[in-house]
Design a protein around this nucleic acid. Structure first.
Length: 230
DNA sequence: CCCTGATTCGC
DNA sequence: GCGAATCAGG
């Protein structure tokens, strides 16, 4: 797997959107393992694991080996240092509210994440049929399977920088210099150019209802998730 | 069984 | 660094 800047950006985006690792893997045409592995290497915020803390530190009971399977799990690494570290900004922190949790919480008052409200529930679904169910996508509808998702261009979905709501405190990249769409309503947040680069900006076109992207980019962003299983 | 994410470790 | 194998919980 060649982790280009684009793929990494996509990974981060999808990851921050709360998609499951397997889902991300399907969209990127890679295995979930690759997704998780890379996510960890990137230091992406861990999402609620279905399993409990496996890292019960070595020693433990000592009587029976905890993980005698492979070799020697002597690599009882540290706990979970990295993730929290990354969120020095309060802005990024709220993202911790993951899909699963979000459903339960049902509200995030002081934690307006970038994801559009309408998008959240979709992405939160274990089996996302958003792209399939409600897709008034004209372009995509034409060639659903054929088009698939090949970005073709070089999209860099940048999760951090929120397009519309709350320009208060940008986490890492200041939206100040970013040329924001003139209109103030919802706008397509498909990134154009490299984040942090002078020319970087967002598409800004009128997004599809309930989608963060315009029809054009939504066709790229949201792909038939079906047919992906080989 | 299926799903999920986390971790390990050979490459 | 990468990701299959594996683990482990729901």
């Amino acid at each position: 797997m060649e982790w280009t800047d684009e793929t990494i950006a996509r990974l981060r985006d999808l990851w921050s959107q709360g998609l499951s690792t397997a889902e991300i893997g399907r969209q990127l045409s890679i295995t979930k393992n690759a997704v998780v592995g890379k996510a960890h290497r990137l230091g992406l915020p861990p999402r609620p694991s279905p399993i409990r803390n496996r890292k019960v530190k070595d020693g433990e009971t000592g009587t029976t080996e905890a993980t005698p399977r492979r070799k020697s799990p002597s690599r009882a690494k540290a706990a979970e240092p990295a993730a929290a570290d990354l969120f020095t900004d309060k802005d990024a922190a709220p993202v911790k509210v993951s899909a699963g949790v979000a459903e339960k919480v049902a509200e995030k008052p002081a934690a307006p994440v970038r994801k559009a409200p309408s998008v959240a529930p979709e992405a939160a679904k274990p089996t996302p049929q958003p792209a399939v169910a409600s897709r008034p996508l004209p372009a995509a509808a034409k060639e659903p399977v054929a088009a698939r998702r090949e970005p073709a261009v070089a999209p860099k979905p940048e999760p951090r920088v929120a397009p519309a709501p709350r320009p208060a405190m940008p986490p890492r990249f200041s939206t100040a210099g970013i040329d924001r769409p003139t209109r103030r309503g919802p706008s397509c947040c498909w990134p154009i150019g490299d984040p942090g680069t002078p020319g970087f900006h967002f598409c800004g076109a009128t997004p599809l209802p309930g989608k963060p992207y315009c029809a054009e980019h939504a066709a790229i962003a949201y792909v038939k998730i079906r047919d992906r299983r080989d």
